[in-house]
Design a protein around this nucleic acid. Structure first.
Length: 448
RNA sequence: GGCCCCGUCGUCUAGCGGUCCAGGACAUCAGGUUCUCAUCCUGAAGACCGAGGGUUCGAAUCCCUCCGGGGUCACCA
């Protein structure tokens, strides 16, 4: 039975890297009819964010990543799970008590102290640390990298397993849980690679079968280095708010580090689960650039039905906008949306009459003429697509105007912009009265 | 600095000894459709496969060295 877990620590909002790790773990489990476990790793008192757990659940839910089981490490800690394992390790001489003050790694820079001075003192209380054996080879086969990785234990330090506050460190908690929860595959970020020998030792010492372990690539920032919460836009929530569809973001993130044999690029979650193959995992770190994300988002928006879009688009438009009117507008701008939030800029003029600026008009005199005659014609025109267009074209031909020039004048008058949806359709949505009023306003503006 | 991982178009990638003077997608540019923008369609440009050595009849694909990028060295995860 394939059992995978997503094990975030609630220290802040979910970012795209977390999301990617989660889909991969989800797909690995579901592709094999296995189970997907959500485990909250809240063993760090200091960095704990009370909103973290909700955010994790909300984001996973928003992206359709349903978990089958749910655990919180602090609860298991309170039940004494880790304490018990740590003490057993001490009893087995694979760990020892240590009373050294906690080191401040930030201040000390990189340290070369591998062996803890307390390991031979036979203390009976304090933090519990791993007694790393000397001069042994320890290795595992990475199922993402598809290769054996090997260390000499002389390069591994006596890592803390249980802190003096009674909480386990990641090293102990994660491995204990992975074994006790029968996790078959550990899929995690590449940044965990260097501490893998510690985990291998812990795994071997507490017994049971080692899960398979695979390390995902790190998503790199276009600014260099790994993606950072400070310098980069990384939070799933932010993307959702900006109007990226969950399906698009998910599809994008799937492609950042995984590709199928046929190099297919469009996947729904279900399709990804079906197509998932661990041999498609990438080994080189990908760069996070939004080009393809934007394309995917536009693509997914265009695939939505207009009636679905009504609800999605609502938060980006005046609250009193009627569904009926939105349904008329949506087909006009659907092809123009990259993000749902673009909707407000693209359709604002439907709700608020445009403000004209001088530089909109390249030929004010010519436009004035266009509007004057256009207005007269539209005033007497029946209000349907065919009538409007044939009347206007007759006028244009009669006057020998350039079609594009005339419509641009009208466009600016009605929409206040040089880039708009198709004009006739726009006029129909606006209605005859409002259209004529705007042309009038524009003419007044031009004559000032 | 020690340890570990990685290195194909600007970006995401296909490729796993010959069918590759390297294919697709995004981005870019050009053309078409068109009342603008966008969508859509067509086309172009774009990597001598990080560099240098091997192995082999034959290497992007195997081996070595170097260089470059990344990660990590906490009683944080």
């Amino acid at each position: 039975m394939v059992r995978t877990r997503f094990a975030p620590s609630p220290t802040g909002l979910m970012h795209v890297g977390n999301l990617r790790t989660a889909v991969y773990a989800f797909a690995l489990a579901k592709h094999n009819n296995g189970r997907f476990v959500l485990r909250i790793e809240d063993t760090d008192q200091k960095r704990y964010d009370p909103n973290g757990i909700d955010d994790i659940k909300n984001i996973l839910t928003a992206f359709g990543l349903k978990w089958d089981e749910f655990y919180i490490q602090s609860e298991r800690k309170n039940a004494g799970v880790y304490q018990q394992v740590a003490e057993k390790l001490v009893a087995d001489h694979h760990a020892f008590y240590c009373q050294c003050p906690a080191r401040n790694a930030k201040k000390e820079g990189f340290s070369q102290v591998l062996r803890d001075p307390c390991r031979n003192k036979n203390l009976a209380s304090g933090a519990i640390k791993l007694k790393v054996p000397d001069d042994q080879k320890i290795s595992y086969r990475d199922f993402v990298l598809a290769k054996d990785v090997v260390w000499n234990t002389n390069t591994v330090y006596d890592a803390t397993l249980l802190k003096s506050d009674g909480f386990p460190t990641y090293h102990l908690a994660a491995m204990t849980d992975d074994v006790q929860m029968n996790i078959s595959h550990i899929l995690r970020g590449h940044d965990w690679m260097p501490s893998t020998p510690i985990h291998l030792l812990v795994l071997d010492f507490i017994g049971g079968t080692r899960p398979e372990i695979g390390h995902l690539t790190d998503i790199q920032s276009p600014k260099g280095g790994k993606l950072s919460k400070r310098r980069d836009s990384v939070f799933c929530e932010t993307y959702l708010q900006e109007g990226y569809l969950p399906g698009a973001l998910l599809n994008f993130v799937i492609l950042l580090g995984w590709a199928p044999k046929d190099n297919r690029e469009l996947f729904t979650l279900e399709e990804f689960v079906a197509a998932f193959d661990p041999s498609g995992f990438q080994k080189a770190n990908p760069l996070f650039t939004e080009n393809k994300l934007n394309w995917l988002n536009g693509h997914y928006i265009r695939k939505k039905m207009d009636t679905e879009l009504i609800h999605l688009v609502k938060q980006y438009v005046k609250e009193d906008a009627l569904d009926e009117k939105l349904l008329q507008i949506i087909p006009l701008v659907k092809d123009r949306l990259v993000k749902l939030s673009d909707f407000s800029a693209l359709t604002g003029f439907f709700f608020t009459p445009p403000a004209y600026t001088r530089d909109l008009w390249t030929d004010p005199a010519g436009s004035g003429k266009h509007l004057e005659l256009g207005l007269g014609l539209l005033t007497s025109s029946a209000w349907n697509k065919q009538e409007i267009e044939s009347n206007l074209m007759t006028l244009i031909n009669q006057k020998g105007w350039k079609v594009g020039d005339f419509f641009m004048s009208l466009r600016i008058a009605i929409c206040g912009s040089r880039h708009t949806p198709p004009l006739t359709e726009t006029m129909l949505v606006l209605g005859k009265e409002e259209t004529l009023r705007r042309i009038n306003n524009a003419m007044e503006h031009l004559s000032l």
